[in-house]
Every structure is written in structure tokens, then in C-alpha cells.
Nucleic acid binder design. Sequence first.
DNA 1: TTATGGGCATAACACTGTTATGACGGGGGA
DNA 2: TCCCCCGTCATAACAGTGTTATGCCCATAA
Lengths: 208, 208
Amino acid sequence: MSGDPRQELVEAAARLLTEQGPRSLSARALARETGTSTMAVYTYFGGMPGLVRAVIREGFARLAERLATVRDSDDPVADSFRLAAAYRRSAHLAPHLYAVMFGGSSIAGFQLSEEDRRIGLYTLRVARDAVSRCIEAGRFRPADPWSVTRHLWCQLHGLVSLELTGYLTATDRSDDEFRAYLRNLAVGAGDTPQQAEASIAVARKGIP
Amino acid sequence: MSGDPRQELVEAAARLLTEQGPRSLSARALARETGTSTMAVYTYFGGMPGLVRAVIREGFARLAERLATVRDSDDPVADSFRLAAAYRRSAHLAPHLYAVMFGGSSIAGFQLSEEDRRIGLYTLRVARDAVSRCIEAGRFRPADPWSVTRHLWCQLHGLVSLELTGYLTATDRSDDEFRAYLRNLAVGAGDTPQQAEASIAVARKGIP
DNA sequence: TTATGGGCATAACACTGTTATGACGGGGGA
DNA sequence: TCCCCCGTCATAACAGTGTTATGCCCATAA
């Protein structure tokens, strides 16, 4: 039951955050949850911001794991779509965590550090690899792969972010709408509507 | 000096929010700022969430004003670009306010209500009108204007949001990068790269 | 066996939103 | 004119927050 007390705190914090929302994540609630006192947060993390930092680092790691489950195929655009779907799914599974990782939502005065953002961007390297292959295959317009990836990420983040804040209705969030959105992203990056649609069909089959 | 105490509170709150950040916006700081007591917040707004609500309503109104300064021309795509630039500029002028209006950043337990979101979406109607004209002119693919507007808004919000959270470097945020981003959005909506570039040049001239 | 130091429980401090209380003051009715 | 009423808001208190100082316990090392 009792392993590394650090890990136990991080897990309890992540659980509170995803199940009860950001306002329920307090040092005293954590002490109650783990059966210790608030001092544990300070001996192991130096304060609440340090703990939140550990939680989002774990979040980045879990996101990287989910993205890594997408295997390369001979259709790089379809691979990109699968990555986008996995990214969106991860955000939906832990909305509050996603809001802290990418949305600027602050808990107990925590603020993203330069290092945090560097790690966050690093988890997107698999996407950049997929985009590189899209360019090499002539599907996307020739350009700096990282620049294209950043654009696509911004666009996907915007959709996810507005979904999480409730600005999009249930019908706006349907699978059909999401596929149309992805198609537009690919077309904006240089793909033809026809080929993009075909890759969406392929990606759809590839996902169980 | 002393007009409507409601308005005075809202203005002081907006000032604190934009100048000192969300953590400085407290009932006691407001009382200090306006020379009264914390009770003013409760008699006029029923609590801090009510005051925050009044602040973001004011924010929506100011955003609508800024968008309304963009006049229709005979190039609807250029008009859309000007609207996007005005939207982005508004967000940059009051980042913390934008984060509460669209980013899901919560202050003192405030949460966006359905009514808030309805008002937020209503401020984007000028964008939908521009998009409608883009479709009528044959520049954008035939589709539901509101759906296309929503997509473009999501994409623009994603860029703005990640700019505000610091995920994009100074070079990523250059004017050239922003124009390339806008061009990709237009191409994704159905415009040709050549026409989109031309409209960007037009919009650039139109902005002082 | 003793000394040292990490882990953490307790209590206190400064802050937060919120509520109860009561005092002030101006407007309307008798 | 008097009086009452009600909106306004200053004060104080309560429960919650992050944080810090204190000191106790106990395991490990000498």
C-alpha cells in the first residue's frame, strides 16, 4: 500500500484534480487523503506549486505514452490524424489536468516555468516526425516541419480548449465535426481535400 | 470622481486584473482600491463570482466594439483577416481578462455560465457575417457559415491561447508567422493559397 | 549506548471569501 | 414634524487557504 511517499502524494493530487476539480486540490485535503499532515507537501515538494509541477510532469509523461501508441504506417497524414485523436482523447480524460498543462489554469499560485513548457513541447516530437513524413511524401507543402507542427498543434489545442470550457455544444463536438476539422487542418497544411478525406477514412479504420 | 458605485467596482476590478494579475483580485484589495469595505461586493454583486461575471461581460462588450471598427470592403477574406487581427490584439491587450473570458481561468470560484458563453459567442456574429460573404463570393467552400466561423475561431483561439501561456517564442509570434497562420486557415476553409496571400496583402494595407 | 538528523504532527500567521450584526442616513407616510 | 423603514456599508467573526516555526519521534550511524 505505502510505497514512495512522493509518488503517493502525486497520485492523490492527480486523483483529486481529475475527480473533484482544481479547487479541491489543497494541502489539507491532500493530508487528509494520504493520512499524513500538510508538512509532507513541503518536505517533498517545497510547497503546493512544486507539487502541482510534479503532477503536470506526470501528465506530460502520460500524454507522451498515449501518443507513442500510434504506430507509423505508410500514410503519414493518417498517422497525424491518429495522433490528433489520441491527443484530444487524453485531454478529455483529464480536463483539469490538461487546463493546467496547456491552458494556463493556475492552482495555488502555480505558474508554468520555462522548463515546464520545454518538456511540454518535447512531448510533441512524435507529431513533428509524422509531419516531416507528410512533407517528404509530398502531401504537405514544403516548409519547416516544426513550424507546421506548431501551427497544427495550435489549431488542435484551440478546439480542445474550447470543448473543455464548454463553448462548443454536443453537436459541435460530434465525431463528424472533428473529422471535418482535421480535414481542414490538413488542407491548410497543403494536402488536397480528396487525399485528406481518404486518409481520414484510413485513420478511422486503424482505430479500434 | 464618484459615479455609479457598481461601475466603479467593475472598473477597479478590471484594472487590478489586467495590471496585477488574477491573484491580486480580491474583495479586500477591491475595498482598499475603492475606499469602501468588502461588503460593497456583496450588496452589488452578491459575491466575488458575480463581480467577475460583470467584469467579463464588460470584456465581451469591449471586444465587440473593437471588432465593430472593422468595416466591410469588397474583399471579404481580407475583412476576415482584419477581424482576426483585431481579436488577437484585444486578447494581447488584456491577457488575464481573455483567459477568464475564453480560457477557463477561474477566479475566486467563478465559472462561466451558459449565459456567459452565449454572450461570448454572440460577439462573434460579425465574424460569421464576414465568413458568409466569403462563401457567397466563392472564396470559401460552400458550408454552414456558422460552422466555418466556429472552426476558424477555434484555430485562432488556439494560437492566441498558447501565445498568452508562453508556449510560443518571440519568433513564433512574429507578424510573418501570424500571416502564414491566417493564410493556412483561409486555405483550410477553401480559399486558394494565391488568393489568400493577395487578401493578406490587402488587409495589411488597410490596417494603419 | 549515544548522538545526529530526517520525517512529520501541531500550532500559529497572514491571507482568502463569506456572513452576521449593527450603525448610519435619507426618503416616504402618518 | 415625527417616525419608521430600508438600502448602504463598516466591523468583526468564521471557515478555509498556503506557509512557517517549533519540537517530538525514531531510525540510523558512530
